[in-house]
Design a protein around this nucleic acid. Sequence first.
DNA 1: CCTACGGA
DNA 2: TCCGTAGGG
Length: 333
Amino acid sequence: MGVAIRDILAECKETVAWDDLSGIAAVDAHNALYQFLSIIRQPDGTPLMNGAGRVTSHLSGTLFRTANFLEKGIRPVFVFDGKPPEFKQETINERRLVRARADEAWKTALREGDMEEAYKQASASARIDSHTIESSRELLDLLGIPWIQAPSEGEAQAAYMVQRGEVTYAVSQDYDSLLFGSPVLIRNLTVSGRRKSRGRTITVNPERIVLSSLLDRLGITREQLVEIGILVGTDFNPGIRGVGGKTALKIVRNGEFESAIAEKQPDFDPAPVREFFLDPPVTDDYSLAWKTPDVEGVVEMLSGRYDFSEERVRSALSRVSVKATQKTLDAWF
DNA sequence: CCTACGGA
DNA sequence: TCCGTAGGG
């Protein structure tokens, strides 16, 4: 869920300093890995790969971002998606099609020597596969970072953990965790604070959205926020054509959600989607434990099998190790 | 995305 | 110390 709801959330976000972010972060793993795979590429769109042709972009991203988090007093837990609900299938199919088209367009752009277009299409063709997931989990294990298998949507599980107070905030670029009820969402949690946008490099700051403030500000309940999401469209339903954030806000404030759906999409029953956001499948079956990284294990994996520079890997790990050790000591005192 | 490095 | 750029695997 993207642009449409962003409009009405624009005034509900605050930029936040890294110093105010120490705590435990539930990272939307799918979202982070996808970002790494789309963006960490050469100018012609080729992702980073080892000599055997295995993609390594996500491993690079995970290693360095994790090192940065720990260095800044943030302990991450990565939350992986489980089985999607059946009403997500249409979105999944559509995305697969978009990626396949982008893959073709990437090849075409390469043939025509248009590198900017090649990079753009390559980004859009990025896809998470079993290697992405398995190698990321292996790296996290070696780094001593916990990860959780959500029964369904990772963002729902993350929201649940923040609600329970075990986690300080959810980290994602998507807004879904707010609909799932996460009390706090942090976006743009990147170190460089820079991002390429339409060819330009712009500065982005970490941004915090507090659910209760958002609801106060807009004068709505979480149920109504979910209704807004459904009206503008989510991963689980297409939304009503022509209804953006502002209109949706007006509709739910007037209590006209049901009638708007009945009028514009009579064949669509919003109840399962609403129920899914308000009471999603989550699990208590996990433990949060951060361990000292297995330095030699990480070097064996990344340098031995994925051709990372050992010097770079050890340098990143030295930052992690120090912090992890300090945390262990802190726990004792 | 990230690090590293050189110049202002 | 900040910024732009090259390169990572």
